[in-house]
Amino acid sequence: MKINFEHNQSAHCENGVVSNLLNYNGLKVSEPMVFGIASGVFFIYIPFVKVNFAPMFSFRPVPGFIFSRVSKRLGFKIRRHKFKSTEKAQQTLDAELAKNNPVGLQVGVYNLTYFPDEYRFHFNAHNLVVYGKEGDDYLISDPVMPDVTTLSSKELEKVRFAKGPFAPNGHIYYPTQLPNDIDLKKAITKGIKQAYRHMLAPVPVVGFRGIRYVAKRIRKWPDKIGVKKTNHYLGQLVRMQEEIGTGGGGFRFIFAAFLQEASVIMENPRLAELSKEMTVIGDQWRDFAIDASRLYKNRSRETDAYNKIADKLDAIALAERDFFLDLKKAVK
């Protein structure tokens, strides 16, 4: 059995699943639109949570927030189920598929057989859509993959019941009752408002202040924790910034794409100008990533090099502050 589901490759898994599921249900929204309405642009530094021996940097809201914010702001409901029993989890999935309902699943990445080895980590907040079953194989639309693929029921069970932080517990979700008329303008305004509120938040580790805080730390790390650890921390920052499913520089471009789209819908030319500014900031993030990667590739020992990239990060923090202040004015 195969549901006539359109697979669209996306930059980020959660945006992609939401956009593809809504499209199937008759609501055409692009990935950047989903991202913008959900205020997906973000920054937080959590020094005391260590992932892979380095502090946590995040350029995205907590997994799951994107879908719940979009549903709230567009006015539809989401059904979610989590399970203790693997059999029940499969039964519920099969029942939904039998109703011709493609569903989103939260899964662990480590046992996804179609992922290249380098990308297989115990990260449990990946998202994909199941849109049918043929024999023992489930038909999978993983939004970060170019094409659809399949997983056997055994393989799917394994990723649905991956363990560790954010364990999915078979988490299955799908939209219900889509409203007839949707107030896109209102949803966009709400998305923008929360985005600048978070990025300008008076909290030292969040938003532009968080970026500035990390810059300050980078200046101190070489003396405090040594060059080797500093390089590893920087590597983590770049990975969080640019890897699939986390994306920071990448996320800035998606947000810029959203502003461009929003500018037309809102009939607000200022947003199109701001889209250009956000593109410049995204390019700055990419520059930073290149410099940081050179630093740990060459294993540079001069502390001046660290000050230089900290300067770059400071410049980004300032640019983002100005940007979000302007964005605030633009939607008033």
Partner: peptide, 29 residues
Amino acid sequence: VVYAVDKDGKYGKALSSGWEAKTIALNES
């Protein structure tokens, strides 16, 4: 997929086979 602007400044999807800066970070880890 990444998002990028075309000649007219319009945003759209583009495909990337990979980026050295990212690969270095991943290899480091």
